[in-house]
């Protein structure tokens, strides 16, 4: 009986503290952290978009210099991994969005210049993804998502959320922020991109 009392008080305290927590500390009670296996062709919201065949002409991304590598959409899966070299090229185009999946506090300490904060562990991530969709960004244009590299799965979870609202060209910077730092590339500190 005492044990249930301890548990009941703990649940009430958790409810209370979460209700009054700020955005960076609040959690939704039901999490959504499943990593789905690669979707079958045609899965995902909206009209299924066919993957371009080898003979198809792939329109280069806006801002891409002539002869630049193309990053075609991949509607059959949530994301594709890309290397540091590819990330550097995409960043140089200045038209490719970069999304940081790490915690906001970590983002403030330093992030890829121009990247926007989209922490998957904070309660407002689904609202941010919906708002990003509502901005009207081309859903087939490349988006780069990153986190801390190594075994960090945050970028994959963010890619999954973006895929579920219709973005089918999410590219994951697999070595993440530590690799960016190691390459001596531009970073920004603070809350702004």
């Amino acid at each position: 009986m005492d044990a249930f009392l301890f548990l009941a008080v703990a649940v009430l305290a958790a409810l209370f503290s979460n209700a009054f927590a700020g955005t960076e500390r609040r959690l939704k009670w039901i999490g959504s952290y499943e990593r789905a296996a690669a979707a079958s062709p045609g899965a995902g919201p909206g009209v299924a978009k066919p993957t371009p065949g080898p003979e198809a002409v792939v329109t280069p991304s806006l801002g891409a210099p002539a002869g630049a590598k193309a990053f075609p959409p991949h509607p059959d899966k949530a994301s594709a991994d890309i290397s540091g070299e590819d990330v550097m090229e995409l960043h140089a185009r200045k038209t490719v969005p970069f999304l940081d999946a790490r915690r906001t506090s970590v983002y403030r300490d330093g992030h890829i210049a121009g990247a926007r904060p989209f922490s998957v562990w904070e309660s407002d991530v689904d609202e941010k993804v919906k708002a990003y969709f509502a901005e009207g960004t081309d859903q087939s244009a490349p988006i780069v998502v990153y986190c801390s590299g190594g075994t960090c799965e945050d970028s994959h979870m963010l890619a999954e959320k973006l895929y579920l609202v219709g973005f089918d060209n999410v590219l994951i910077y697999k070595d993440g922020y530590p690799d960016w730092i190691q390459r001596g590339l531009p970073v920004t500190k603070g809350s702004e991109p």
Binding site: F6, A10, A13, I30
Partner: peptide, 19 residues
């Protein structure tokens, strides 16, 4: 399971403190 992670993260620390 993914759906239980947050509930556990919210309740467990309070259970530790109160107990």
């Amino acid at each position: 399971p993914g759906s239980l992670v947050n509930a556990m993260a919210l309740i467990l620390p309070w259970l530790e403190v109160i107990t």
